[in-house]
Design a protein around this nucleic acid. Sequence first.
DNA 1: ATTAAAATTTAGACCAATCTAAAAATTTAT
DNA 2: ATAAATTTTTAGATTGGTCTAAATTTTAAT
Lengths: 217, 217
Amino acid sequence: MSSFTEENYLKIIYNLSAWQEGEVSTNALAEQTQTRAASVTDMLRKLADKNLIHYKKYQGVRLTPEGERVALQVIRKHRLWEVFLVDKLGFGWDEVHPLAEELEHINSEKLIQKLDAFLGHPSADPHGDPIPDPAGRMPHPEHCRLTEVVPGQAVVLVGVTEHSAPFLQFLDRTGLTLGCRLEVVEVNAFDGSVQVGISGNAPQFVSQAVARNLLVS
Amino acid sequence: MSSFTEENYLKIIYNLSAWQEGEVSTNALAEQTQTRAASVTDMLRKLADKNLIHYKKYQGVRLTPEGERVALQVIRKHRLWEVFLVDKLGFGWDEVHPLAEELEHINSEKLIQKLDAFLGHPSADPHGDPIPDPAGRMPHPEHCRLTEVVPGQAVVLVGVTEHSAPFLQFLDRTGLTLGCRLEVVEVNAFDGSVQVGISGNAPQFVSQAVARNLLVS
DNA sequence: ATTAAAATTTAGACCAATCTAAAAATTTAT
DNA sequence: ATAAATTTTTAGATTGGTCTAAATTTTAAT
């Protein structure tokens, strides 16, 4: 059995591993966990003793199969709770992350199985992130970033890779809701901004910083 | 802001105070919190420093108005989550207590306000215990124990004062669900058992141990 | 290839919540 | 009223998670 804190570390290691290949660094973990590098080192020794991570001093860290299993269960719970908060309780997608951070650590297989059924076995959370199945298998839906779409193509917004409230609120104001249709007019070679028609409206510019965090298919 | 553990102590002090008049003893708290008396003493000093309880050494303990406010918020959350688990997720009333013990410590005013609305502003939890309003006012519905009903009277089962799974499962098997009609034939003066018709069926005996934990009106 | 800079680990400490064992206060019984 | 039993508190230690400051290792720059 893993503690609240251990589960958090495993989840964060999983998420950082997904982003970049290879090992996760102590400093990256310190930033994500809002602690100091020294504290991270202590926890890494503990997780390594429990065979949840592969860890060699100064060499960064990688999940073991068992560590990945635990991480995926936590992520599954997190994303199901987010669906509950948005679909059932009416929260905005910009508000649910901190609440799901707490709810995800409630450990009851039965609870999560019943919640999943109540929500209709959703395949993705409100940000488009896929929900691992009960056995901990993570689906990998095919999609690409808006920055990579060729001009003239029409796509659908299926996810975001940035979850901060300000970013999500900006998307709301711009009409960029999940599932909306995007017609790409031009990708600006100079600054990477994208000129795009949103849900059939007149085209407008979306900065590269925004476009690279939009997943489409 | 109170910690998970502090909230638990306050909730337990509230519940023990409701049962018996006067101060709550250190030993009673040790039993309820599943800790030792020495640990309780430490926590009591801490809660007293925060002005959440009135505490004099060897004299037992009583909530301050502020402590009672916190306790009632925790109880409100506990009972709302129990309603959610039974009404929405389909748990049995004998299963939800341990889960609600965890969910009750998630602190978000907005979450609990939205949950309350989603559930239709229930006035009682699945065991018939009243739910404090958002301001922390606890309703006091009029009711009495089944042992106090005079023979010949017909009443409705509105609550229970024992929440253990075995007890609740026994009630399920006996047909004693909340809201069922009870026609009292006789209260046995010798052993306190009650002969009662449940939902119009042929009368049967209910032991005093059971009857005194059934609230009717 | 050295050196400077950055990242990481160790050493030693702290806080919250708990424990055991022993001391002190209160209650009960004679 | 005094002794015995019970309850409660104190003293001192432990565990999980964190910290700062200093030491060490790795990486980057010349």
